[in-house]
Structures are given as C-alpha cells and as structure tokens.
C-alpha cells in the first residue's frame, strides 16, 4: 500500500515563469493575433473566443492548485458557478458588474480557505475527495434553492457591463474586455509566482520536502494556492454569467470540473502555459473537430490515459522530453 506523495508527477527544476525576450515577443504576437481573430469570425466564433478566455481564467487558477501546490481539485466548476451566480444575482438586482466581480472573487477565496483548511490538515488526496463532494453539494444547492438561484429554471437576461461609459453589450467589445481581463489576471499570477513571496510556490512544486526543510510552511502555501485558484474561478464565473446572459446549474457540475482538471494535466500541470494548451483542447478543439462528434471526448479519455503512461508531464513537456532523449540523459 504505497500511498506515496500525492503531488503531481514530473518535477524538473524550472523557473516559476519562463522568461526570455523572444518568448515575450512571440507571446505578444500570438495574443495580438488572437485579439484580432474575431474580426474574421461571426458571432459564434467570437462567442467561443470569449468562452475560451473565461475558461482560461479558471484553468490558470486551477494550475496553481494542481501544478504548483500538487493538489487535485475536482471542484473548480463549483467555484466557477459560485462566481457566476453571485454576479448574476447581483446584476439582476441592479448592482454594477464591477461591484460584483470583487465580491465573487472574495467569496470564492474565502470558501476555498474554509474548504481547504480542514481537508489539507489531514492527508494529501483528501482535498480531491472534499472538492468532489463540495462540487456535488454546490450543484444541489444551486438547483434546489429556487428562491435565490432560480433552480432548474436558471437566471435569464443577465446584462453585460459597460466600461467608462462604453457599452460592452456587443460581442466584439465584450470579447476584448474579457481578453484584456484574462491577460491582466495571467500577468498578476505570473507576477505573483515570480515575486520573492511567490517563489515558495515553485519550491513547493519542485520539491515539497526540501521546501519544508527550507522553512516554507507547506500547509499554508498549499492552502493559499488552492484559495487563489478558487478565486480565479470565481472571477471567471462573473465573466461567464455576463457572456452567456443565462445561467443554470448544468455547466457547473462535477463533469465540468473533471474536464478542466484533465485539460490542465494534459496541457502540462505546473507549467505556466499548460492551461492554455489544455483549454484549447477542451474548449476550441471540439469545435474544430466537430466531425468526430461524440468520439472526440472518448478519444480525449484515451489520450489522458496514454499521456499518463508515456508523458506524465503533459504535452508541454514533450520538447524537453525529446531533447533529453537526444542527449540520452533520461532513460
């Protein structure tokens, strides 16, 4: 019965965030290309791009939990849902989006702390269990507390915000707004991970035992990573509610959490850009491979298994893996 350390797999020593000028320049080109992409697309394409950004916020948060703190979270969709409902209920009551956004973020942060604290006190994989249970419970509350959440009927007619007097009602401005917010969030996370205070996260990822011996309070940092991850999902939820204009409990079920988790892992947990690859696979690729229909997800399931067997570091670890094979450093 080897309950070995339950942190996620490959732990090569890397800086918390990759940095180099060419990389930055390339990233900028990709971002600009993506920002201009919807100009050539119709409403649905734009909608998908916005949805991609929304999920990106959630998966970047999740990556902090999985990749850096080494914790399996099966409840990211619940936090997405909490954020979405807080924003939707507030905005339906006439409160502005920009008042609800921090509220959604704070609520998810606090709930993340409250959930993670007892679960992390005991054993590592218990956070996976606790978050799974939590997700199902949140789903039930959303569905049954009809007076507050609208139950299975959901909440209709959620408005989109306006920024400095400019309406973001139309699809294209809303996409740019969401994209800008996503980039801001990603930059914040990048800054956090690079700051002296945040380097502990990378230490935690690379070697928790060593980090502990160096005086990093593992439990506190793991908990913090989880709560920040939850907070990101809460923010994403607010954008989701506004994007779709309608919410009901369905998109916040356990299956959605599962897909986000698998997406991050397939992309490469603990790699700063892992969530980008993962979110492309779970949000954009199915659209592109529509001819595969239901076989797409089946193939995705197989890919997850194959990846765990042959490339547990995720798709982004492929170049390193090939390089190391050429040198012959690794078996």
């Amino acid at each position: 019965m080897n309950a070995s350390s339950s942190t996620v797999i490959a732990r090569p020593r890397r800086p918390a965030v990759p940095r180099s000028r060419t990389r930055l320049a390339l990233a900028a080109i990709v971002v600009i290309a993506f920002a201009l992409l919807p100009l050539g697309l119709k409403s649905y394409g734009t909608y998908l791009c916005s949805l991609f950004c929304v999920y990106l916020m959630a998966t970047f948060g999740l990556n902090l939990t999985i990749g850096y703190a080494g914790q399996m979270s099966l409840g990211q969709a619940a936090f997405l849902g909490i954020g979405a409902y807080i924003a939707a209920i507030g905005m339906k009551a006439g409160l502005p989006f920009f008042a609800m956004l921090p509220l959604a973020a704070l609520a998810c942060f606090a709930i993340g702390l409250a959930l993670g604290f007892p679960a992390l006190r005991v054993q590592h994989h218990y956070l996976a269990f606790a978050t799974l249970g939590f997700n199902v419970l949140v789903f039930l509350v959303l569905r049954n507390e009809e007076a507050i959440t609208g139950g299975t009927f959901g909440i209709r007619g959620i408005p989109r915000p306006s920024l400095f007097g400019l309406s973001l009602e139309r699809d294209l401005p809303y996409f740019w707004f969401t994209l800008a917010s996503t980039l801001l969030l990603i930059a914040l996370l990048g800054w956090l991970l690079r700051s002296p205070w945040g380097r502990a996260f990378a230490a935690l990822r690379d070697n928790p035992i060593r980090a502990e011996s160096l005086g990093v309070n593992i439990t506190a940092y793991t908990l913090l990573a989880f709560a920040i991850g939850a907070c990101c999902a809460g923010i994403a939820g607010a954008y989701f509610a506004s994007l779709v204009g309608f919410i009901d409990p369905a998109p916040f079920n356990f299956t959605a959490s599962l897909l986000m988790l698998l997406g991050v892992i397939v992309g490469g947990a603990g790699r700063f850009l892992g969530p980008v690859v993962g979110t492309v696979i779970i949000v954009l690729l199915p659209e592109w491979l529509r001819f595969m229909q239901n076989w797409y997800l089946a193939a995705f399931g197989v890919a997850v298994i194959a990846l765990m067997v042959w490339l547990p570091g995720g798709l982004l670890s492929l170049p390193e893996r090939l390089a190391s094979r050429r040198i012959g450093a690794l078996p």
Partner: peptide
Amino acid sequence: RHGVIPLVIATLGLSVFVKQGIKA
C-alpha cells in the same frame, strides 16, 4: 510505479473514455 495521482488521473480518463465511447 508513478504513484497514486497519475493512476487516479488515468482512471478519470478511463471513465471519460468508457462513458463517451458508449455514447458515441
């Protein structure tokens, strides 16, 4: 040999595969 978590993830992948495979 990789430990608990990769196996957990693989079974999650397996559950997606079996369910969606039957559906498809």
